[in-house]
Amino acid sequence: MLDAAILAVLVTMVLALVRAFQGPSVYDRILAANLFGTKTVLLIALGGYALQWHSFLDIALLYALVNFVGTIAVMRFFEYGSDTEEADNGGAR
């Protein structure tokens, strides 16, 4: 069962990567990257349990935090700092 779950997480990561490469917009890519990050957390937790490496759980916890902060930071950047990419956008400063 554990193997099947790890396999499913890996398949999902590949699907997220496909979406991240396809785009089309930058937000799709960030969404896919965020999903990829969450799946990495799950993979570290499941894999660490499967291999009985207990310290992996700490890494998973930390990765979940970093993933969240990273997504927020990148989104703030694209929300307020994207004059060059979308010049016709009235909201950007």
Partner: peptide, 11 residues
Amino acid sequence: AMAKAALHGGQ
């Protein structure tokens, strides 16, 4: 945050 940024960015 993602939805808001996408709306802001003209999506």
